[in-house]
Design a protein around this nucleic acid. Structure first.
Lengths: 203, 203
DNA sequence: GCGTAAAAATGCGTGCCCCGCATATTTTGC
DNA sequence: GCAAAATATGCGGGGCACGCATTTTTACGC
């Protein structure tokens, strides 16, 4: 990757991070595009060269994570499908280098801000759409892995859709519970249940 | 329901239908809120008393359908969960009275317009969000049916998420195939696969 | 019927957003 | 270095979402 592309990726990440941080701190409507551009050190017009809306900038990190699932899935060895899926999703929700680079002062306050942020309707749509975009990649990976034609057969897209559904359900439950249940546990449970056909538990 | 509420529902449906029809005919960006309001016989300002955005108006019908799933699920008798789900989802995708009231001149042209419409990013987000809203109702219905606390246990929301995932996958596959595969077949296959744990088919 | 209170529709003004287009600046390949 | 391509910026317009005040419509008790 040349200097050109690296700088582009940096600007993109910088804008996305600024959008998230400011929104969590001040609330979606209180943050103007101008503020985000300033925080990232570019002109307001440049913001829209990278993202077509404020929401898209905020959802960009989620999009990257979901695309990472598809990428990881392609690198898994031959193994049962749901084992491969679980081990592709889990690492995306571990704290990584990108998070470590932006330490958060007050964790509780941050979480509260994230909850408020995710309550914003337009954000919910944007985040779900990010998942849908990644779904196409996941479906393609599943198609390659199983040798099933996604144009003709529903199976690959259905699996991809189920993967994102389980991931979303785990994430919302993570945010719903207080204190938040660990994602690793929720994801493991979710995919185990899916692989078992979601049988009604007998209490 | 009194006259007041009925008229409100009528205006809402009228606005939503006008938004959809005009968008399918002319394209999302070519339709102004003013046009929709005019077609529904209300002032532009009134439009935003019913919907907070153009996209929301277009997605409203989808939201109603998805909420109908939750409602139907509550009325199903005691039976295996996935039987109840299938029989709750299927009727929502049959041509109903609401569709019959608005006959379409050219079916092929209409379908093409719908495809273009659904390619609009903001619409995709809005439609997915409608599904997410309905998910909460479905989760509540599943919680009642199974007696599982949705606050504490992931299961109800996971099932609801899977229901919408399968429905979405069926719908996108319906639009992807040419000629469109019938929804009834796709939905039946999807829920059968989900109930079986999405095993990799052996060709 | 009729008056009144609630609710809905409307008109107006504001701030912001998204994008097209023209221009300036930077990077790349030679 | 230099020309070409890619990127960043400045400017302006069309439109959208919404707050607020006002008018019109509806509901209901008498």
């Amino acid at each position: 990757m040349g200097l050109r592309e690296r700088k582009k990726a940096e600007t993109r990440a910088s804008l996305s991070w600024a959008a998230i941080r400011l929104t969590v701190e001040r609330g979606f409507d209180s943050v103007k595009v101008e503020d985000i551009a300033e925080a990232a050190g570019v002109s307001p017009r440049t913001f829209n060269n990278y993202f077509s809306s404020k929401g898209e900038a905020i959802a960009a990190r989620h999009l990257d994570r979901c695309l990472g699932i598809a990428e990881a899935l392609r690198e898994r060895p031959a193994e049962p499908l749901w084992d491969a899926v679980l081990h592709s999703v889990l690492p995306q929700f571990e704290p990584d280098a990108a998070v470590a680079a932006h330490p958060v002062p007050d964790a509780a306050q941050w979480t509260a801000g994230v909850r408020v942020m995710l309550a914003e309707p337009v954000l919910q749509g944007e985040i779900l759409r990010a998942g849908a975009i990644a779904e196409a990649e996941i479906a393609a990976a599943v198609a390659d892995r199983t040798g099933i034609d996604p144009q003709q057969d529903l199976y690959p897209h259905l699996v991809a859709s189920a993967v994102m559904a389980a991931t979303n359900a785990a994430m919302t439950h993570h945010l719903r519970t207080d204190p938040p249940m660990p994602m690793s546990r929720l994801l493991t449970d979710a995919f185990t249940l899916i692989a078992a056909g979601l049988p009604t538990p007998t209490p």
